[in-house]
């Protein structure tokens, strides 16, 4: 096994400010960036703050910016960097720093609450749901989301525009609207809730100009833009501006046989 000494720069500080701190640290075969951060904690900086949980790319806790790129630390192998490269690790930029690599991601939990929940179909009890696999495939793709919030962090609508945070739910939660809208048994429509319209009116879908930055950073490779946001936009726009759709929605269908 071959070990070497890597140079790291890790942002340390808190809400009052901070800066990059230099470290030299041992790296072994097969390690990921999170291993190195842990080694720093155990040997050089015991109070270095970092969030992590599963260390297997399943929980989405250890999000950070590595050499400026939003990534999961547990899924970033050291072998992708040159041995003489200095590796810079900084906290997610879009969210307020708490300490070191830990940020306040409360924005995301607030947005999650603003999305109307699944509406169970009336008249179907537990055990009576029937859905075809091809009909659940689309929503299942979005439910792969591990809520690492890298897409929320990278989206330029809020990345450097705090003022947009009020009105924009971000890719993760617009995708949640799409997921529910495509759920084969969601009964929102029957209760008068038009999910496509809320995406546009309440959650800021119009701010998205499909630059696909969110898709690029998604560690689960979810096609957020192509499969969630664009279809949602198309359907929202159909409803809003298409005169035929508008007309159709105003004229009730002829009752069968009558």
């Amino acid at each position: 096994m071959s070990s070497y000494e890597a140079r790291f720069q890790v942002w340390r500080g808190d809400v009052g400010g901070g800066g990059l701190e230099d470290f030299k640290v041992e790296v072994n075969d097969g390690e990921v960036v999170l291993d190195i951060i842990h080694r720093l904690q155990a040997t050089q900086a015991p109070d270095l703050a970092v969030r992590w949980n599963c260390k297997a790319g399943k929980c989405g806790s250890c999000s950070a910016e590595i050499n400026g790129r939003p990534r999961l630390m547990c899924m970033t192998r050291m072998s992708v960097f040159g041995r003489d490269e200095t590796i810079t690790v900084t906290p997610l930029r879009t969210f307020p720093v708490i300490r070191d690599l830990v940020t306040d991601v409360g924005f995301n939990y607030r947005k999650a609450r603003e999305i109307p929940s699944f509406v169970p179909p009336p008249g179907l009890g537990p055990g009576e749901y029937r859905m075809q696999q091809e009909d659940v495939d689309r929503s299942q793709e979005f439910r792969k989301c591990i809520e690492c919030f890298l897409c929320q962090n990278t989206c330029h609508v809020v990345r450097d525009h705090d003022e947009n945070k009020q009105v924009f739910a971000g890719p993760r939660f617009l995708m949640r609207v799409a997921e529910l809208d495509m759920h084969p048994l969601d009964a929102a429509q029957e209760t008068g809730l038009d999910r496509k319209r809320t995406a546009q009116d309440d959650h800021g879908l119009g701010y998205c100009n499909i630059t696909k930055c969110c898709t690029e950073v998604c560690p689960e490779n979810i096609k957020i833009t192509d499969n969630a946001l664009i279809p949602l936009k198309e359907r929202a726009i159909d409803r809003k501006y298409d005169p035929l759709v508008w007309l159709g929605s105003k004229i009730s269908r002829r009752p069968p046989g009558g």
Binding site: P126, G127, Y129, R130, H183
Partner: peptide, 24 residues
């Protein structure tokens, strides 16, 4: 256990399906 699984569907869970549309 079966009731606990079915209940999850009414809360929005999307399990993989059998050919006849049940939970696989």
């Amino acid at each position: 256990a079966p009731d606990r699984v079915w209940e999850l569907e009414t809360w929005g869970a999307l399990f993989d399906r059998t050919k006849d549309g049940r939970i696989s």
